[in-house]
Structure formats: C-alpha cells, structure tokens
Design a protein around this nucleic acid. Structure first.
Length: 535
DNA sequence: TCGGAAGGCCC
DNA sequence: GTACGGGCCTTCCGAT
C-alpha cells in the first residue's frame, strides 16, 4: 500500500511530507507505450521517500491533494511525461519544476541514471529493471521493487533540484519552466478530427494500395519491402546504387524517381499511400480529437511532438488530385488562425552574424531570397533559396548539386563564393562557428544556452553543428517567447510546428503583432492567416 | 520479441 | 572515398 524508503521514522516522515511545500514526484506506468499509471513516488527531502500503489490506496488522496495544490512546488524529471500521465487526476501544472531541463542547461546528461551519479545515487531505467526481472512490463516486476525504483528516482530528483537551484534562478530556466504548463495544456487540448473526411481519404488511399499490391504480388514481390523492390528492379535491368551500409540496393525516392521503369514510379505511389494510411489515417480512425505529447528534449531546445506527431503532417501536394492528410483536422470554432514567424532562421543568422546586407533586407521588409539572387547574380529564386539553406546546414558541393540540379561542381563553388562575398559578415560568422564547433565542442545561443557539439561523427559534422545549433536553438528560443506572449490564448492553442502556431477560432484582434515582433532583439514579424482547415 | 536499417514526413 | 542541421514513426527482417 504505502512503502517507505528511508532510515528514520515513517510516520514522522509522512507528516513532514504532508506539510511540505516542495515535493519531488515520479510516476510509474505499465510501460512506455501503455501509460496507465500504477504508482506514485513522492519525496520531501533527499533522504526519505514514499511509494504509493495507485490501486485503492487509502493514502493516495492525501498525496493527490498535495499535487493539486498550486502552492506546492512539484519537481519532476522529464515533467511532460508525468504531467500527461497524471492528467486524469486533475493535478496542478502551474507550479512545475523539471530537473531534466536543469541538467541540460548545465551540460549534464539528462537521463536520470546518468544524472543521479552527480548526487551520489544510482538509479535504474525502467527498461533495465524490467529486463532484470524478465518482465514484459512493470506489472511483471514485484511491487516493492517498483516502489524502490520509483522512490530512488524521486530522491535523486529532489537532490538534483537542490544542487541546481542556482541554475533554476536563471532567466533561461524560468523561460523553460514557464513553457511546461503551456506544452501540457496544448497536449491536453488536442485538435478536432473530421471523421467523415478522414474515412473518405482513407478509402482513397486504401484503394490505391490494394491496386498496387495486387500487381506487385502478382509479380512475386512485396512493394513494402525495400530489399525485394531493389532485387526486382535490378532484375529488370535498372541500375541501383548500394545503401550506406552496402547491405542492399538503394530504393529511396530520389533514386527511384530517376528511373524510367514504370514499376519504380508505382512503388513510389504505393509508399506514399501506405505512409499516409499507416501513420495518420488509420491511427485516427474513430476518434473525435487527435492528441500529441509536446516536450522540449531536442538538443537544440526545440519543441518536439510525439505519440501522434503533429509536426510532420504532409502538406498539400500541388498536383491537387490526391487528398491532403492535413485537411482532416478541423477547428472547434469555425476557423483556424495561423501565425508564422517567416524566415526566422535566416533572421537569426543575420542578427548573430551582424551581416549588414541581410539585416538591411529584413529591416526594410524585403525578400531575402530575392536579395540572394541579386547577391549571387542568379536568375532562379528557388535555387537562391536553396543556397541560403545550404549555407545554414553546411551542405557540401555534392549535396547542393543534388538539391539544385546544378551538375557542375566548379559552378557550385563559384556560386558559393559569390554568396560569401555578398554576405561577408554572415560568411565570417559561419567560418568562426565552424571552428568553434570542432575545437570547443560547444556553442552558444541568443539567450546564452550552451549547446554541446557531438564530436563522434567527425569534424565536418561538428563544424556543421557549430553553425546550425545556435541558429536553430536561437530560433526555438524566440518562438518560445512568442508562445509565452500568447498564453492568454492557451485554451485555443492547438499546434506548434517550430515557427508556426495554430489557434482555434479567429483570434486576430487578440494578437499584439507589434509586441510579438519584438519579443527578442531579433525582429520577427509574424504572418497571420485565417483558414477553415489547417494546410 | 527486440532493434537496426531503410525510408519518408516536417521545419 | 567521403553525411545537410534538428525531429518522429512505420515497415521489414534478421538476431535473440
């Protein structure tokens, strides 16, 4: 029922816990997929903890009362997970702290087993615990062992928080902390799904898949198996390169789209249909809302979306014939209001590098890609745009070649050269960041967050990260500030996609666009549009 | 049953 | 001879 982990008097510890204004909390669930809670661990110190089984436990109401109390500070390690699991209990989410975020801010590994060494503790991941007990899920582990694990986690969490309180005072942590209830509220709210439309689109793609499947199985292969696709295409006389691991023939989209064999084109159509069906259409059958889990555990500080990723929904294809997956999402209040921080990453590059020409374009409301055309003496705006992104990502000649269709590598080098001459300030900054990435193995964002650069993937990769991390990380920070400024719209906030936020209903008059453009020193005007469907 | 590889969607 | 930064998810298929 109630397990006590400590070396003093359980009753005294319990009374102290119930009087405490600061609790470390951890929830155990069936497993990572089935997030049904089975127990809650709480600690009001770094020495004593309790574990409560969730089922019919007379002590549970007292703990839940603490969790519901906004005056009580709740410390979690990876709070988005616990907040989502505890959602049915109606807990307070406003007074949330998160030691995983603190760990990231001080450059310490954020997984608890690693972090706990820092506070003289040893914790075990749920996965390892289950493996040690040869259990399929946590229900297969003896309850006292689950309780020990959970309690140990809360003790480590409590200790980590105490140790990292100086960091918790930082402006940066306070921003992240403020984001936690925002992300939980969006995750909890979900977005409407038009079942009629969904079923209609599912039928469309199911028919396609059925058709292609009939043909392929008639030919003796499965269209869903890259290995078999490579084998059959090669047998029909197509040349296919090897995959990176050299274990099989490459059959990716780029490769297949270059083949004249109609079978290759059919495989591509099959894959698209199957992808839409398996990832979006079938999983949303029969639900009136779609829910995601938003977190901030990307290395650059970006918001990420999982358990129904709403950040990678296919956009409308220009062909027009195939129905778009995005159109199944509908507003509760007739329309969506969509704000978009256009060109935010290039604005960040302009700001961080102080490149005069870029800054001039952005401040005068010009078109950066058109300016790049002029800078480079190019006639194709699409390719100018690709060069801009190539510079941000650190693409080499062959990658740019594949992307732009410019076959002559020397020509690409000349274009790159003229980009660097035209944007000399940006080029110098990029050069500097590449050096930093490889030599210092860490770089800094706009708001001062230090990002560790991985060195294990080689020098080129580290150099690219040196450029991209601060750009992507700073853009993420600016957009978080924008989201925090939109908290009065939280109840109608539906989706965040890095530089885009979707609100339910027409909220234009509730947006202070002037203020939003100036949340940070990087000028970030927002494009606003109203749409009956998303996408 | 698990996990790597391959493929593919987003910014 | 050579990786374009950050994510998430699905299917296939061989290893355990």
């Amino acid at each position: 029922m109630r397990w006590y982990f400590g070396s003093a008097d359980p009753q005294r510890a319990w009374d102290e816990l119930l009087g405490s204004r600061r609790l470390a909390v951890d929830v155990e669930t069936v497993d990572l997929v089935d997030r049904t809670p089975i127990g809650i661990g709480v600690a009001a110190s770094g020495e004593e903890a309790f574990y409560l089984s969730i089922f019919d436990n007379p002590y549970l109401p007292e703990v839940l009362a603490k969790l519901r109390d906004g005056r009580v500070q709740k410390i979690y390690h990876n709070s988005p997970y616990d907040l989502a699991v505890l959602r049915p209990f109606g807990i307070d989410i406003s007074n949330t702290e998160d030691t995983a975020i603190l760990c990231r801010l001080v450059g310490y590994p954020a997984d608890l087993p690693s972090a706990s060494f820092w506070v003289d503790m040893q914790t075990e991941s749920a996965k390892d615990l289950m493996a040690r007990h040869k259990a399929k899920n946590m229900l297969g582990v003896p309850t006292d062992k689950v309780g020990l694990k959970c309690s140990t986690d809360t003790l480590a969490t409590f200790r980590l928080f105490e140790k990292l309180i100086p960091t918790a005072d930082s402006k940066y942590y306070q921003m992240e902390r403020a984001m936690l209830p925002v992300l939980e509220t969006i995750s909890r709210g979900g977005i409407g799904v038009d079942q009629e439309r969904r079923a209609q689109i599912e039928e469309h793609y199911a028919r396609e898949v059925e058709y292609y499947n009939a043909i392929c199985s008639g030919m003796g292969f499965s269209a869903g198996s890259p290995y078999q696709v490579g084998f059959i295409l090669a047998k029909r006389g197509n040349f296919l390169p090897l995959t990176r691991s050299k274990r099989q023939l490459a059959t990716d989209e780029i490769t297949l789209s270059r083949l004249s064999d109609p079978l290759a084109q059919m495989v591509l159509l099959y894959r698209r249909a199957e992808k839409f069906l398996g990832t979006y259409l079938r999983p949303l059958a029969g639900v009136d809302r779609a829910y995601t889990t938003l977190a901030m555990d990307a290395v650059t500080g970006r918001v990420n979306s999982s358990r129904m990723n709403l950040q990678n929904l296919p956009k409308q294809k220009e062909s027009g014939l195939a129905p778009t997956v995005r159109s199944i999402f509908i507003p509760d209040n007739k329309v969506f209001t969509i704000i978009d921080a256009s060109q935010i990453e290039l604005r960040v590059l302009a700001y961080l590098s102080g490149d005069r020409r870029m800054l001039e374009v952005f401040q005068s409301g010009g078109d950066i890609h058109a300016e790049t055309m002029k800078v480079m003496g190019m006639t194709d705006r699409i390719n100018a745009k690709k060069f801009n992104f190539a510079m941000v990502y650190g693409a080499d000649e062959s990658v740019i070649s594949g992307h732009t269709g410019i076959r002559d590598q020397a020509a690409i080098r000349r274009w790159t050269q003229s980009w660097m001459e035209g944007y000399a300030g940006a080029a110098a900054w990029i050069w500097e960041q590449r050096k930093k990435g490889w030599q210092d193995a860490k770089v800094t964002t706009l708001l001062g967050r230090q990002l560790k650069v991985p060195l294990d993937k080689g020098q080129k990769h580290a150099e690219n990260c040196g450029v991209n991390y601060p750009i992507q990380g700073s853009a993420a920070e600016i957009f978080k500030l924008i989201m925090l400024d939109c908290r009065h719209l939280l109840d109608v906030t539906r989706v965040q996609v890095h530089d885009e936020e979707v609100f339910d209903g027409d909220v234009r008059e509730k947006l202070d666009l002037e203020a939003l453009a100036h949340v940070s020193p990087v000028y970030t005007p927002l494009e606003v549009r109203i749409a009956e469907r998303w996408g």
